[in-house]
Every structure is written in C-alpha cells, then in structure tokens.
C-alpha cells in the first residue's frame, strides 16, 4: 500500500471549554479525492481547517496532536505556516474573489511568493485558469473585475487562484453549497479531474455529491471521526451502525 499524503494522529481541538474534535486519527491518500461527510456541526469543516492551520486565527482555539504532511508534522514549532498554506491550498464555501481584476486574482498568490516577471505570471495565470476549466470564459476579460463573474464562475476562479501557487493538497469546504445545479455539476467535474495532480479533501453535506466525486470518505459525528475508508464501501457497507443510520437516512 502506498504511503499516505497526510496522516492525522490523535488530533484534539477545543474552543474554550467546548471540544470540537475528539482524538481524530486518519490517513489521507495522495492524488485521490477524500470526502468528509457528517451532519452540520460535526467538526468536519474544523478538521479540514486543521490541515492548513487556518484554525490558528480563531481566537481561543487549542489544538493538540499531530498532522503529518509527507512525514513532517505541520504543528511542529519550526514550521513556516505560510509555506504550509502554499502547499495546502483552500477553497471556501462562499466564493471569495478579491475585488480586483481576474488576472490580479490569479496572480495574487504567485506575487506573494515572489514571482514578478510578466511573462512568467502570464503563463501561470493561463495554466491556472485552464486547470480550473474557466480559461475559455475569461480569456477576453482578464482585466475586468472578478466580481462581474457569476457565482459558479467565481468559485472556479477561486479554485484557479488556489492552483496558481502550485499546491500539493487542495482543501475544499463545501465548495458548491452556494452554487446552482449547473455550476455545481461543472465544479464536480473539475474536482474529478484535479485528483490527477492534486490530493483533494472535500467537505460536503451532500452525500450524492460525495458519492459522485470521492475515492475515499470519512464520516464525522459530534467531533469524532466514526469511520473512514474507500467511498463505495462506506456508502454501501458501512461497518459502524451510526454511519449506516446516517447514510441510510440520507439516501432513503
């Protein structure tokens, strides 16, 4: 069996007195789509944000345990979190383009990391837009404000923006929950393509969607990771009764 891209060991997270994650351990395969499912408030989004340390900005948060990315503990004291977030990109629930041009949105990340050359940036922008399957729609209006795009286009732009810093892992927090069905379909198709190059972890409340896009899945309930494994197994023959109830409830 191949070595996992990310492995989580005994992860605990609490806000003040509230425990949001309870002793979570799991393995996430490289170049695959892993879906995190569970009822709202179960901790799946919180878990996702632990993988690029976005929870660091939440006030009063305490995290224990380890998350290994290619064998390095991202919660180690020596870690440069900006480099971590460059390697582990993120797409949010609400499309959140910067109020700038489409081009500047994509070039933002590379510029942060010191790339200034016009030609190099042009290349990266084109590559990223193509990677997010939005190049054809935007190539004639790169200088126009990104806020003029539709919601679905904005979300794919945000995916392109995340790709532009050439990450290894892409975290997606309910990326289609604010989108219409047609845009959702496009983003799902994109996710299936992305796994060729990237490790994708996606949080979704929509189980059909999870079933459509994922290779692996993990079920969260009340801060615990109940069960994880290949998606088809988890959805058709779950081992744990709680997973079975949840899956059955959702499908039935």
């Amino acid at each position: 069996m191949e070595r996992s891209k990310i492995s989580v060991r005994n992860l605990e997270l609490s806000y003040g007195a509230a425990r949001a994650l309870k002793n979570v351990s799991m393995e996430i395969r490289g170049c695959a789509v892993t879906a995190l499912i569970g009822p709202s408030g179960c901790g799946k989004s919180t878990f996702l944000k632990c993988i690029n340390r976005m929870n660091d900005f939440v006030e009063g948060v305490r995290i224990r345990g380890s998350v290994f990315l290619d064998g390095e503990d991202i919660y180690d004291r020596r870690v440069d979190t900006t480099l971590l977030r460059k390697k582990v990109g993120m797409v949010f629930q609400q499309p959140n383009p910067f109020p700038m041009s489409i081009y500047d949105n994509i070039a933002y990340g590379p510029r942060l990391h010191g790339i200034r050359g016009r030609q190099e940036l042009d290349g990266i922008v084109e590559e990223a837009l193509k990677g997010a399957a939005i190049f054809e729609e935007t190539k004639d209006r790169l200088k126009k404000s990104a806020l003029g795009l539709s919601g679905g286009q904005q979300q794919r732009l945000c995916i392109a923006r995340a790709l532009a810093v050439r990450p290894e892992v892409l975290l997606m927090d309910e990326p289609t929950s604010a989108l219409d069905p047609v845009s959702t379909r496009k983003v799902e198709e994109l996710i299936r393509n992305l796994k060729k190059k990237y490790t994708v972890v996606i949080v979704t409340h929509n189980m059909q969607q999870a079933a459509r896009v994922c290779d692996d899945a993990a079920f969260f309930l009340a801060g615990e990771m109940v069960e994880s494994g290949p998606g088809d197994v988890l959805f058709s023959r779950p081992k744990d009764r709680r997973t079975r109830d949840y899956v059955a409830g959702r499908f039935g």
Partner: peptide, 12 residues
C-alpha cells in the same frame, strides 16, 4: 530561492 522541500524552515 527558498528551500521548499521542507516545512521546517521559517522564512525571514
């Protein structure tokens, strides 16, 4: 160029 092979390197 920054060494990007390891995370254990805080950039100045």
């Amino acid at each position: 160029m920054v060494d990007e092979t390891t995370l254990y390197h805080k950039r100045k």
